[in-house]
């Protein structure tokens, strides 16, 4: 038997089906690129969440806090490096963004470590308490953000080299979206390679299927889980930083806004599946952009509809994870 490519096909099908509706070639390309960029950013934020659920049956409703923290830390670093950001050199611009992103990931990752210890660990296996406590963590984290960064939103300006669009004939593609796509694809490739080729990756996949057996083979799944949790938090920080730069504003509510899309994506993908999360994120990003163009009023509702349709087709999501 071969791998299941059917869900993957949905992406080109969706893109092709929307083409006649959008009508114009240049708008369609622009929308598709925007959709893929948005999808990849959501994927970055969602990947860790789906893996921690698969591994330990833990769903962190406070995941949005890491997204918000990443956005704020990155914003602060970029504002501090204003000279580099404003410089007329692509390399200085990228260096500033790179530093900002690294700082965002470091802080979010560290916060993830603390969150796992204090908030998540005492409530393993108790779903109701888990939902409540992690939501409580989100409330507290949001308030702490306001304490540190103040209640007002921060406005970011993209550096000169990443403003505006590249023109290919009559098709305009925003430069920042290309960067977001590149980073998103790099993260996906790194995750996919890690999961497919490394011992840690094998252990994670095995643990998602049957954690008890992984322990019976002599591996401490708790450590594995903490590692995944921290990496997932750091990735959420990365995604938050990129999202903030994409929106050019950062508010404390950013986490709560994006987390809804993240949840939709991991439900669509099948909880625990990174591949499903990837496909789901692209579908959500594309749908949001096509519908946003065709019928702006129902843009967010369209993702709920997408989720409902996919769950009708595959009730466990696109790539259900085989569970013991």
């Amino acid at each position: 038997m071969k791998r299941d490519y059917l869900p993957l096909l949905l992406i080109p099908v969706l893109a092709a089906a929307s083409f006649p509706l959008v009508g114009s070639w240049s708008s369609w390309v622009t929308l598709s690129v925007a959709g893929l960029a948005m999808g990849l950013m959501i994927f970055i934020m969602a990947s860790g969440l789906t893996l921690t659920f698969g591994l330990m049956d833990v769903l962190n409703f406070g995941h949005g806090a890491f997204i918000a923290v990443g956005a704020f830390v990155a914003a602060s670093v970029m504002l501090a490096l204003g000279a580099w950001m404003g410089a007329d050199s692509l390399w200085l611009n990228l260096a500033a963004i790179g530093l900002a992103v690294l700082a965002a990931m470091a802080v979010s990752g560290a916060l993830g470590l603390a969150f796992e210890r204090v908030i998540v660990r005492p409530v393993y296996g108790q779903h109701l308490k888990q939902i409540l406590v992690t939501t409580g963590g989100l409330i507290v984290a949001e308030q702490l953000l306001k304490v540190v960064w103040g209640p007002d939103q921060i406005t970011l300006t993209r550096p000169a080299a990443l403003r505006g669009a590249i023109l290919l004939g009559d098709v305009a593609i925003e430069k920042y979206r290309l960067l977001a796509m590149a980073i998103g694809l790099a993260v996906f490739a790194a995750l996919a390679l890690t999961l497919a080729r490394t011992r840690i990756g094998l252990l994670i996949r095995a643990g998602v299927e049957n954690g008890e057996m992984v322990e019976s083979l002599g591996y401490r799944i708790r450590r594995l889980f903490v590692g995944v949790f921290v990496v997932g938090s750091a990735l959420a920080g990365l995604g938050g930083a990129m999202w903030g730069l994409y929106q050019e504003t950062v508010t404390a509510a950013i986490g709560a806004q994006v987390i809804v899309l993240v949840f939709i994506v991991i439900i669509i993908g099948g909880l625990g599946s990174v591949g499903g999360c990837f496909v789901g994120a692209l579908l959500v990003g594309l749908t949001a952009n096509y519908i946003g163009f065709l019928a702006p009023k129902v843009a967010l509702g369209s993702n709920i509809l997408l989720m409902a349709l996919i769950l009708l087709w595959r009730p466990q999501g696109l790539y259900p994870v085989a569970k013991r």
Partner: peptide, 24 residues
């Protein structure tokens, strides 16, 4: 569905509804 699934889906539905209300 399981508790967690239900919580996630209600969150998504509620946020869609809030957006709908402000759009209409």
């Amino acid at each position: 569905l399981r508790t967690i699934f239900f919580a996630m889906i209600t969150l998504a539905v509620a946020s869609a509804f809030a957006i709908l209300a402000s759009q209409l």
